[in-house]
Simulated assay, not measured.
Amino acid sequence: MGARKSREPLSRERALAAAIALVDAEGLAALTMRRLAAGLGVEAMSLYYHLPGKEGLLDGLVEAVIGEIEVAVGRAEATAAGGDWRTRLRGRFLAARAVMLRHPWAPALLSSRPTIPVGVYGYYDGIIATLRDGGFSYRIAHRALHAFGSLALGFAQEVFRPAAAGGATDVEAAETDLAAMAEALPHLTAMVAAEAHAAEDPTLGWCDSQTEFEFTLDLLFDGLERARE
């Protein structure tokens, strides 16, 4: 008789990795403690030892994504070692965005959590350190953080984000509504018609494309350079 294959013990890391894989494939609405437990081959109650309920699970997902950002940014920082502040911050923010593009559900989840994950503080401390190394005062660094907003974490926080409440943006319905109001909203309608996103331009929302993300970064960096001078 062959030796019985031992089952990998359940851990917080293993549970979160499985949860991320599930949400990447099917979205946040598919994530339940029961569904996750079934995928791991354990009883649902076993998960509670590592993740205290659904809210604890969601907090864990955010922490895991922040951890991915820290790793990605570490690589970007190593690549940009010796570069100026602008090169380093650009690499940092684009590395964070690459993580968000892998997990397009993460921006809405991060925006909805009632507490700030501990890892975020260290992440922003690194941004301030980069600005200080670049010759900026703490006053300008503080104002820069306000200007960057969620761009620092790799996404643009849109005005309307139904996904933050568990929904989704119905782009076709929104565009139909806009077309119906074209006479009353000529400039908004014309802008949307002129600014259709290219199919190859990765997006995280109705109006959060890679091209617009990088344009906004460069605009902010130009402004910061003038403020420093």
Rank of each mutant, 00 (worst) to 15 (best):
W105S: 02
E195N: 13
L110D: 14
G41P: 04
A179S: 07
F148E: 00
A81F: 12
I128E: 09
A17F: 08
A152M: 07
A95T: 04
T32R: 07
I20E: 07
A173V: 08
P104N: 05
E195H: 14
G39Y: 03
W206F: 13
G74N: 04
E63Y: 07
G74S: 06
L153I: 08
L178T: 02
E158F: 08
E214S: 06
V23A: 00
E70G: 04
R139H: 15
D125M: 09
T32C: 10
A76T: 05
M45I: 05
I128K: 12
P162E: 10
L61V: 00
E212Y: 15
A44K: 15
A95C: 03
I127M: 11
A184M: 14
L16W: 01
G56F: 04
P114S: 05
F93L: 05
P162I: 06
A129I: 05
E225W: 03
D133K: 05
V23E: 00
S137Y: 10
A152K: 00
L224C: 02
M191T: 14
D201R: 09
A98R: 13
A156N: 10
L58W: 11
E13C: 08
G2T: 14
L153G: 02
F136C: 03
S112I: 06
V120L: 14
F213E: 06
M1N: 09
G27M: 00
I140Y: 01
K5L: 11
R4Y: 07
K54G: 07
G82I: 02
L51A: 01
W85Q: 01
R75D: 13
R161G: 07
E200V: 10
E63D: 15
R7S: 09
S111Y: 14
A76N: 08
V120H: 04
S112A: 13
A173G: 12
V65Q: 07
S150K: 14
L58P: 01
K54Y: 13
R228V: 11
G39I: 01
Y48S: 01
V71P: 09
D201I: 09
G167N: 08
G154H: 03
T176V: 13
E175W: 08
M45E: 09
R35P: 03
A95W: 01
T176W: 15
T203Q: 11
F93N: 00
S150D: 09
V62N: 11
F93P: 02
G83I: 02
F160E: 12
R35N: 10
R97H: 02
R132V: 07
L219W: 15
A144Q: 02
I140C: 02
A144C: 15
A196N: 14
A17L: 12
G83N: 03
A168G: 12
R75Y: 11
P107K: 00
R113D: 03
I69R: 15
E55V: 13
D24Q: 00
M191H: 15
R7G: 03
R75M: 13
L31H: 00
F221C: 04
A80V: 02
G2W: 15
T189I: 06
A198I: 07
L16V: 04
P107I: 00
A78L: 06
T216L: 11
P114M: 05
G154F: 04
A80I: 01
R7T: 05
L110V: 09
E172L: 13
R97S: 01
A141W: 05
C207M: 09
D201N: 08
E183C: 15
L22H: 00
H146N: 10
G53V: 04
